[in-house]
Amino acid sequence: MRGMELSLNHTQKLRLQRALESLSSGSSSNASVTVADSIPVNQEDGVLKGHGTTELDGEVVATVCGVIERVNKLVYVRTLRARYKPEVGDIIVGRVIEVAPKRWRLEINFSQDAVLMLSSMNLPDGIQRRRTAVDELNMRSIFEENDVICAEVRDFMRDGSLQLQARSQKYGKLEKGQMLTVSPYLVKRRKQHFHHLEKYGIDLILGCNGFIWVGEHVEIKDSMIEDEPTKPDPKNNSQISIGLEEEEQTYTSLEIRQNICRIANAIRVLSTLGFSITLDVILEILDLSTKKGLDIHEMLGAEFCVLVAEKEAERRSSLTRR
């Protein structure tokens, strides 16, 4: 098993095995290939060779381990464990590793660092204008090294490097939360990658690159409207109120912190078991953990892992029966 080393006792081992076996019996698709396996194709129809394939003596041969996918004439191999392969429009979470002239470089689990240009992101004051040299000097006030950022894939440059954009209030710096790293194949592309879990007061961002953000919910405020003239207050009074306001802003209540950890642990369990990570499944696991009255740290234990596997097996079998 990848990731965490679980110390299972004998019964737990058997239960886990049975659960995982029932998973494999459900899907009997036999389209897995390994490196250098030839892929059966109908040569008369004409074939388009996609990613993960190559031609050898007139045969189509896989170059990676994965699952064969066919779309009309196109044949490609979908890899499982591999680095993130970006597509335009993907929502990703990344970490700033360098502040360079007019751009930030982000680590996004791709074969190169992604580039976020200063010109392709909204300024904090929300005004649309040309970026000046002053803006360039103040780049560190927007993002610093090691900040976690949410952005969208804009396009590929000629040389294969990746450009990002963050032209909306929903993108930008992520604070007060945890970033988790999972294998990108576990996150599916969906319409919705931003989730606001109102019950827990939490924002969940499932980045397509396998970086997942769990953090306190932030209201997206349109900074354009915020240009109200502040009331003239006595000087010392206003200072105190600002101090309180700041404190309120940086403070995250214990309950929310616990919720963050609980959700993060649910995702960790899913990732160790290698189950695909979707909102429904995460919420189901949260329910399971609260129903069993488990503490947050107990969610990473062997017993809960087995429970999750059994639950998932049950869920999938019920889906196929329907």
């Binding site: 995982l20 998973l23 494999s24 459900g26 899907s27 698709s29 897995s32 290939v33 390994t34 490196v35 250098a36 396996d37 381990c65 994965g66 699952v67 499982l80 464990r81 194949y185 576990l186 078991l273 290698g274 189950f275 695909s276 998932e312 999938r316």
Partner: peptide, 17 residues
């Protein structure tokens, strides 16, 4: 090859649909 095949199948099955 056997080892890789087994591993690939296992990953795919666990991931589910």
């Amino acid at each position: 090859r056997e080892v890789l095949m087994e591993n690939t199948k296992q990953l795919e099955n666990r991931r589910g649909v």
